[in-house]
């Protein structure tokens, strides 16, 4: 009941310090319309993306690992190029390109900053990066944006795996969350999907790209199945 007598307890406008709780939906829209769907950090990364591969830079940029995740059919796609120092195992440089919404672009940009700052992240550490780490860096994302747009950790893992393959360290290839097809080379169904996205249409293309099934002939039927599946999925 509204009364005219003023309460003796004075309520001051406290500055609310928001605790970062990533399970809670982050939506920084304000009722006056002046706010933004994304946090200021996200906005900054979106409008001023760091370390992306500029036109004409592809030829010059030296890298020893490349990772690609997603596909435009599902909405987001990302390519990450990394230069890893084989001695120190630190990521000295990286470049990226992302097809996707504001949060996808911002999250890749944030990741690229995280892995090269302070003279570069060690790859063992980089492999432990989780989407949550990128989210924290960004100050959160709207809930429904999280699963689709934070692909950075997967692209990074894929790029480091590529580095392992390029440096003949097949045993170190990480295969978490994927089905291993070729045990000797640690090639997974994800790798085959990526190869198809990169244009592999037949077994020869696949063997050329991944060296898969060259020594280990019994995996060939499985490879052909996956080739057919992914080719139909994307180009059918």
């Amino acid at each position: 009941m509204p009364t005219k007598t003023k309460s003796k307890i004075k309520i001051t406008n406290k500055k609310v310090v928001q605790k970062k709780n990533l399970k809670e939906e982050v939506d920084v829209r304000t009722p006056d319309g002046g706010g933004w769907l994304y946090s200021d950090i996200v906005k900054d990364h979106f409008f001023n993306p760091r370390n992306f591969m500029q036109y004409g830079e592809e030829e010059k940029f030296k890298f020893n690992g490349i990772g690609r995740v997603g596909s435009p059919a599902c909405g987001d796609e990302m390519v990450l190029w990394v230069q890893i120092d084989p001695k120190t195992e630190k990521i000295s440089q990286c470049r990226w390109r992302t097809f996707g919404c504001g949060s996808a672009i911002a999250s890749t940009s944030a990741l690229s900053e995280m892995i090269v700052e302070n003279s570069g992240m060690k790859i063992d550490e980089a492999l432990k990066l989780k989407p949550q780490n990128i989210l924290e860096r960004l100050g959160g994302l709207p809930n429904r944006k999280v699963h689709c747009s934070v692909l950075g950790d997967k692209a990074l893992q894929s790029a480091i795996n590529d580095f392992f393959r390029n440096t003949a360290q097949h045993s170190r290839v990480q295969t978490a969350g994927a089905k291993v097809i070729d045990k000797e080379l640690n090639v997974t169904d994800h790798d085959i999907e990526e190869a198809v996205l990169e244009g592999a249409q037949n077994l020869e293309d696949l063997q050329h790209k991944l060296k898969v099934g060259v020594f280990n002939k019994e995996v060939i039927p499985q490879l052909e199945d996956l080739l057919r599946f992914y080719n139909e999925k994307y180009y059918g």
Binding site: E58, R68, S71, E77, V79, R97, T98, F99, G199
Partner: peptide, 20 residues
Amino acid sequence: REISPVVLEEGKKHAKIHQR
């Protein structure tokens, strides 16, 4: 487009994707 890794080929029912 500069920050996009996707290059679609127009005119196909299912667009082909090329890596730049």
